[in-house]
Design a protein around this nucleic acid. Structure first.
Lengths: 203, 203
DNA sequence: AACCGCCTGGACTGGTGAGTCCAGTTTTCC
DNA sequence: GGAAAACTGGACTCACCAGTCCAGGCGGTT
C-alpha cells in the first residue's frame, strides 16, 4: 500500500485525475462525476475531498499536463542540420496533437472555453504559444548563423506549425479520425521541413 | 425535417435560425432554448413547431450555412498568375475562419461532435475537406500547366491551408482573439502565397 | 360571422447531474 | 490499542433545462 503524506491519499489523487482526463476527454465535459468516480474506483465524496468542484478538477487536469505537454519541444537539438532540427520539431508537434492525451486535452479546453476563459488562455499560452515561441527562437538563431533567411520568425513559425498540424488538429476535434502510423508522421514532418527550407533557404 | 406546410411563417423560421446561431455560437451549445426564443422574439412553442427538437435546430443551422460557407472558394480565378490565385484562396480561407459566422459554426460543430458525429462529419466534408480538395485541384492544374512543381497536391494543399489558418483557428476556438484587420489578412495571404511558391516553384 | 390553425406566455413534467449528508468502515498516526 | 481523519456507498437536495400542455389572442379563408 502506498505512502500517504497528509492523511490524503496521493495515489488516489492521481487515479482520479487519470480517470477524469479519460472520461471527460472522450465523453465530453458534460460527463457525470459519478462515472469518473466509478472509473477511478473511488467514491464521489473522495473526489470532492481532493478537488473542491468539477471546475477545479478540470483545472487540475489541464495544469498537470500543460507543462508536460510542451516539454518535449525543448529536446530537438538546434545544432544539427536545419532539416533534421525542423523535422524534429514537426515530429514532436504531430505526436502531441495525435496522441489521445493531447487530443482530449485540446478538446476539453475548447469545450471549457466558454465558461472558463482563463483556463483556455492558460492552455493557449502554455501549449501552442510556447511551442511557436521556441520554434521562432530556433529560426532566429539559424538565421543569425546564416543557415536560414527568415525575415519574420514569428510568422514563419506559425506557418511551419500550421503546415504540420493544421488539418489534423481540426479533424481530430471533429472526431474525424485517420490513423496515425509513425511512418506517416515521419513523412509529413520530413516533407514539411524540406519544403520550409526551400521557402526560407538562404540560397 | 417534417415540413408541416400549413401556414407556417417563413420569416420566423429565419429569425429563429439567426437567433439560435447567435446564441449557441457565443454561449455554447448548452445555452437554453428560452434564450433563443427570447432573442428571436418568438415563443418557445413556435421553435418546436418549426424544428422538432434542439438537435434538429442545430442541424438546421449547420445545414443552412455549410454550403454558403464553402461557396466563396469557387471564386478565385485559376488563370491569373499563381501568386494572385493562391493569395486569393488564402484570403478567402482567412476571412471564413475569422468571421464570427465561420467561427461560431466551427465551435458549435466541435462541441456537438461527441453527441452528433454525423453532423461533425458532414461539416468536415462540406467545409475543410471541400476547400482542400478545390485547392488541390488548382495545384494539380497549375502543375500540369508547368507553372508549379507539386508532386503531392493533397499534402501541399494541407500545407498551404495550414500555413494560412493554422494558428488563428485554434486561437479562435479557445477564445483568444486578436483583431482581424483587413491589411493583416492581406499580408498573411500574400506572404503565405509567396513562400509557398518558393517551396513548390518549378525553378 | 364562424372556423381553423399558428401564435403567445406561462405553468408544468421529467430527467439529469452537481454537490451534500450521513452512518458505518478502513487506514494512518501516536 | 485507540483517536483522528479519510474513505465508502447510497440517499438526498437543488438547480437547470428540454420538451409538453393549455388557455387565450390573432389572422386568414369560405
Amino acid at each position: 500500500m502506498p505512502r500517504t503524506v497528509g492523511q490524503i491519499d496521493q495515489a488516489k489523487s492521481q487515479a482520479i485525475l487519470d480517470a477524469a482526463a479519460e472520461v471527460l476527454g472522450t465523453g465530453g465535459l458534460s460527463a457525470p462525476m459519478d462515472e469518473i468516480a466509478r472509473r477511478a474506483g473511488v467514491s464521489k465524496q473522495t473526489i470532492y475531498n481532493h478537488y473542491g468542484s468539477k471546475a477545479e478538477l478540470i483545472r487540475a487536469i489541464v495544469d498537470r499536463r500543460v507543462e508536460e505537454i510542451a516539454a518535449p519541444l525543448l529536446a530537438p537539438g538546434a545544432q544539427d542540420h536545419p532539416q533534421e532540427a525542423l523535422a524534429g520539431f514537426g515530429r514532436v508537434m504531430l505526436e502531441l496533437v495525435l496522441r489521445p492525451l493531447g487530443r482530449s486535452m485540446l478538446k476539453m479546453t475548447v469545450q471549457a472555453a466558454d465558461d472558463m476563459p482563463d483556463l483556455a488562455r492558460a492552455f493557449y499560452e502554455a501549449g501552442p504559444k510556447t511551442s511557436r515561441r521556441r520554434l521562432a527562437e530556433f529560426l532566429r538563431a539559424e538565421t543569425l548563423a546564416g543557415r536560414l533567411a527568415v525575415d519574420d520568425p514569428d510568422q514563419a513559425a506559425d506557418f511551419f506549425a500550421g503546415m504540420v498540424i493544421g488539418v489534423r488538429q481540426i479533424a481530430g476535434l471533429l472526431g474525424v479520425e485517420q490513423a496515425a502510423e509513425p511512418e506517416v508522421i515521419e513523412q509529413v514532418a520530413q516533407e514539411a521541413a524540406r519544403r520550409f527550407l526551400r521557402a526560407y533557404g538562404v540560397d
